[in-house]
């Protein structure tokens, strides 16, 4: 499997996700500068977390128009799997590859903590190593993680089973108390129609090694390697 991690000015999880990918792939992903015109041939494109362009204007808004994004969008539309984590998820909504938008967290705070997520489906390239409805622990670290979309869009996401992860309690219930940031329908992650694009606010790469205190994020990378090898 070949993977490309796009590096933007202000990305800060690009190396972390590269370490996680390397651990499961056995080789390093290609680090691709955002100013390049083309992503080298890859089985997976990762838009990493961070604060691209200092979150100016709106989180992910400037990065969505970086030179490399034309090719990322083209490849995403042709079916190349794309994983957007945190700021990467914000870029995916800003490009329109995923619907909706991320608002400021409801409590106005930067939230950096472990949260529990329910895996909504395990029949995608990203989640086959999880169980359906499995409760996993993954950290969030963001200021703008409050997912918003209009009611029609939310209904379409529910009807087509495109919600990837929901914030939940220890028993897997997506309660109000378990929702850290006010996200609509407790949405923590989303797929596109074909489930080839995943955007999620939590950081699986931050709990993908025993030395980091947990490995619940590892299965996501293992799923990708297993499917895309």
């Amino acid at each position: 499997m070949k993977a490309a991690v796009i590096v933007f000015p202000g990305s800060n999880c690009d190396r972390d996700v590269a370490v996680s990918l390397n651990a499961v792939m056995g080789s390093s992903p290609e680090m691709v500068w955002h100013g390049n015109a083309e992503v080298p041939k890859s089985d997976l494109i990762v838009l990493p977390g961070g604060f691209s362009y200092g979150d100016y204007l709106r989180s992910g808004a400037m990065a969505a128009h970086s030179p490399i994004m034309k090719d990322v969008i083209k490849k995403a539309n042709s079916g190349v799997p794309v994983l957007g984590i945190c700021n990467g998820f914000q870029m995916l909504t800003e490009t329109g590859l995923l619907p909706g938008v991320m608002l400021r967290n409801a409590n106005l705070k930067f939230i950096c903590k472990d949260v529990q997520l329910r895996v909504e489906r395990n029949d995608t390239v990203f989640t086959r190593r999880y169980k359906k409805d499995q409760v996993i622990t993954i950290p969030v670290a963001n200021h703008d993680g409050n997912y918003f979309a209009d009611e029609n869009t939310l209904a379409r996401l529910e009807d087509n089973n495109l919600i990837a992860f929901r914030y939940c309690d220890a028993d897997g219930h997506p309660t109000g108390e378990a929702n850290p940031n006010g996200s609509a329908r407790n949405i923590a992650g989303l797929y596109n129609e074909n489930c080839t694009i995943l955007g999620l606010m939590p950081h699986p790469e931050r709990l993908a090694d025993k030395q980091l205190g947990g490995i619940d994020g590892l299965a996501l990378f293992e799923s990708l390697v297993e499917t895309l090898h």
Binding site: M62, P99, A149
Partner: peptide, 9 residues
């Protein structure tokens, strides 16, 4: 439409 505003919100 392209950059300054996010027409979703």
């Amino acid at each position: 439409e392209k950059l300054l505003a996010n027409m979703v919100i």
